[in-house]
Design a protein around this nucleic acid. Structure first.
Length: 465
RNA sequence: GGCGCCAUAGCCAAGCGGUAAGGCAGAAGUCUGCAAAACUUUUACGCCCCAGUUCAAAUCUGGGUGGCGCCUCCA
């Protein structure tokens, strides 16, 4: 498998550090609010990476943190009149609710900053001891210029950065490029922990370095996140971790592109964002997931109603294929015919195409194409009915690929109540008596309830929304 | 000022030197009591523009034009 590595700006063959497991760390959310569709992209993309690696036979140790100690959380807590811990707990719960709808599997570990304070304090102390950090009035800063190679990920030149002069000048810092590892408490009500430098809390960047080390070790295979984290967040993580451990931090750095609105970056500060929670009111999580996977992960994707409709209709084609096969399985019998055997043998090509696409830096757009080509074959094979065995094999093949993408996983509730059953029976009776007006009327009534009836040669197929 | 990305049909999107995948939307047809689903056919002599390299370029090089991003909390 090839992977685009931001560190080298090229696609590289992915070679795991160990044959036992692949170590992946993905920067997780700061839990002070519902996450938006832009935040959702890395969750879905790197979940797909993980699924594909597991499909390819690798064992993956996947760590994604929760940043539950942060200024925004503190502010939120003040606003809502609850503790910072309660804010964190609340939005972690909401995170899992949304992410479950998106078919994003739980990470191997979801560490929280608040549960890693001793490790962080140790990490910071070590950096001071090694001469990479210094304390001023209860704050601790990292000496950027002491770490050679600062800027290697984002390809920034230290002197150019300084010349940019867009960095907040803090009196306490020895150099404007230095960043906080530990922040002293400003007022007594703030969450804070005891430390060698007094009461305070960790800076943003140090958390990931400390948690990555604790849960995955000093050198990991892949560190991933959104492109906007490249600088300064990931650059700072490299500086901290490599200064501390004296060895490479991550072998591959993967960054997903933005979600845009009218071609502008979606962001909380611009206020042009849509939360997944809100989008879910109109589209299923799988539609959102399909939308996010419809382009290659490094390209920007524009978010719009029109594109969501396209995603919904496209996914609908996949769902129809699945539903039609399930209906055939329930109503047909028999084993593979000679003609069907040829079709089944042809499935392999689509699997190969799928793997080829996914091996090429997770080209999910092409992966989806392979699934549609499989569906075309299946539809052609079944247009005049098929054996039960064929339908079973076709469905298994379809789900094998779709599930790697995290699609077609949610089984719909197809139970119907007595009242609906009575209407369906009545419609059948009406059709038999050629009372098509009544039959169509009933179909419309059910349609209004979100139940679509299809009259197939294998009987009535009921589709619920 | 520094670093970087992108430009393919009405819309989305692959392709990365060998003669334009796939999906949505649209049109016609088959099937059906009618629908739905499915199937068949159909929609880019051309891939932002101009040069160049090559037997061959959407794909490489140079120069434009237009859009976006990072350098500041941000996925």
């Amino acid at each position: 498998m090839k992977v685009y590595n931001t560190l080298t700006r090229t696609k590289e063959e992915f070679i795991p550090l160990s044959n036992e497991e692949v170590k992946i760390y993905v920067c997780g959310p700061t839990v002070y609010n519902f996450f938006h569709i832009g935040n959702a992209r890395p969750f879905v993309v790197f979940d797909t990476l993980r699924r594909y690696m597991e499909y390819s036979g690798m064992k993956v140790n996947f760590v994604q943190n929760f940043t539950d100690v942060d200024d925004k959380i503190i502010n939120r807590a003040k606003e809502e009149g609850i503790s910072a811990a309660e804010v964190g707990d609340k939005y972690i719960k909401e995170y899992f609710d949304d992410v479950q709808a998106l078919n994003v599997r739980r990470a191997t570990v979801h560490p929280r900053v608040s549960e890693n304070i001793p490790q962080i304090i140790q990490f910071v102390s070590d950096l001071i001891e090694k001469g990479f950090a210094y304390e001023v009035d209860g704050d601790v800063y990292f000496s950027t210029r002491k770490f050679q190679g600062y800027g290697k990920l984002s390809k920034q030149d230290v002197d150019e950065l300084e010349a940019g002069a867009r960095i907040m000048i803090e009196e306490k810092k020895q150099d404007p490029l230095d960043f906080a590892l530990w922040k002293a408490r400003k007022e007594p009500s703030e969450v804070a922990w005891e430390s060698p430098w007094g009461m305070g809390r960790p800076g943003w960047h140090i958390e990931c370095s400390a948690m990555s080390k604790r849960y995955l070790g000093e050198t990991i295979d892949i560190h991933a996140g959104g492109v906007d984290l490249t600088f300064p967040h990931h650059e700072n993580e490299i500086a901290q971790s490599e200064a501390h451990n004296g060895k490479p931090f991550a072998k591959y750095w993967m960054h997903n592109g933005y979600i845009t609105i009218d071609n502008q970056k979606m962001s909380k500060s611009l206020g042009n964002f849509f939360t997944v929670r809100d989008i879910r009111k109109e589209y299923s999580g799988e539609v959102i997931r399909y939308f996010l996977l419809s382009g290659q992960y490094r390209s920007p994707i524009n978010f719009s109603k029109e594109l969501m409709e396209q995603a919904k209709n496209s996914l609908g084609r996949m769902e129809n294929a699945k539903a039609n096969l399930e209906h055939l399985i329930a109503n047909e019998e028999g084993n593979l015919t000679d003609e069907e055997k040829i079709y089944v043998a042809g499935f392999d090509k689509h699997v190969e195409d799928f793997k080829k696409a996914m091996d090429d830096d997770l080209n999910t757009a092409d992966g989806i194409t392979a699934v549609f080509e499989l569906i075309n074959d299946i539809n052609n094979a079944t247009k005049n009915g098929c054996s039960k065995e064929f339908a079973e094999k076709a469905l298994a093949q379809l789900l094998e690929l779709a599930n790697v993408l995290g699609l077609l996983e949610q089984s719909k509730d197809d139970s119907i109540d007595d009242e609906v059953q009575k209407l369906i029976d009545e419609r059948q009776e009406a059709r038999k008596n050629k009372d098509f007006a009544r039959a169509d009327e009933i179909r419309d009534i059910l349609k209004a309830k979100g139940i679509t009836l299809k009259d197939t040669p294998q009987g009535i197929q009921i589709i619920k929304e």
